[in-house]
Computed example of a mutant assay.
Amino acid sequence: MDLGLHGRVALVTGASSGIGAATARLLAEEGADVVVAFGHNEAGARQIATLIEAVGRRAWLCGFDVADAAAVAAAIRAVGEQTGGFDVLVICAGHNIVTPFADVTPDEWDTVISINLSGAFHTLRAAIPFLRDGAAVVTVASVAAATGAPHHAHYAAAKAGLVNLTKSAARALAPRIRVNCVAPGIALTPMGRETVANLPPDYAREKLALQRYAEPEEIARCIVFLASPAASFVTGATLDVNGGRDMR
């Protein structure tokens, strides 16, 4: 299936590892040129850029702290002017701290909220002037947005906010820009493996209909679909990709 992404320009945050990295690679394989945005992991971002160039697409590196609104605006403005604009924006930058509910400190709360929720807002707001007509935005939330999480309540709260930020943006930016959300279950990323380490050994078998955790590419395929013209009549939606964890 041709998703219609050939020659498009995509900006992916959190693209140096995990789901963001898998998304950047798949976008390139579908023919898109990709801005590989990262926070601290420049080495990982360079590796992804090399893979993108290996399939014949252009890659740009763009480092910024999503929690710093001014830094986000400056970086996106610079790369937006360099590329001439974006057809796809994937907001995948995220951070989690596994802490029991009663032990979450104010600093931990602020850090997790600022990266996962405020950072998404800063990124989308800064990118709007550079999003071309017909562009698509995909945010990456979590199954925790719907289920809650006793050992990372701040993360669950931020991701629930992101789901509704997505809906608000979809209403505000229509009909020129589509905005959707993917809510993954646990994927075997560096952050996901830390979560798995704090779960009972039989969690996947007992809680997930598919009885396993996701590979990052399985989440990325859904993101790339929503980012593509193949999903041209989808906006304001949240796609649950959780192996049957949360059937409502």
Rank of each mutant, 00 (worst) to 15 (best):
A37S: 15
A28Q: 07
A73L: 02
V224I: 05
P201R: 12
A120W: 10
L208P: 05
L27R: 05
E53N: 11
R212Y: 05
R58E: 13
D240Y: 09
G56H: 12
A135T: 12
L124I: 12
S16P: 08
F64I: 10
A136W: 06
F38A: 10
M247E: 00
Y155R: 11
M1H: 13
R193K: 14
A67R: 15
V34K: 07
I177Q: 11
R193P: 00
P201G: 00
A75P: 12
R46G: 02
A75I: 09
L210Y: 13
A54P: 03
H40K: 15
G119F: 03
A45T: 06
H95C: 00
A127T: 11
V224H: 08
T166Y: 06
W60N: 03
A149C: 07
I115D: 00
L165R: 13
V140Q: 02
A183L: 03
G80K: 08
G14E: 03
A67V: 04
A59M: 07
A70Y: 00
K207F: 04
T23N: 13
A22Y: 12
I97Y: 03
G56E: 10
C222N: 14
V140G: 00
E30M: 04
L199C: 04
L117A: 08
I128F: 06
V12T: 14
A127S: 14
P129T: 06
G4Q: 09
E217S: 06
G94P: 06
A74Q: 14
L226A: 02
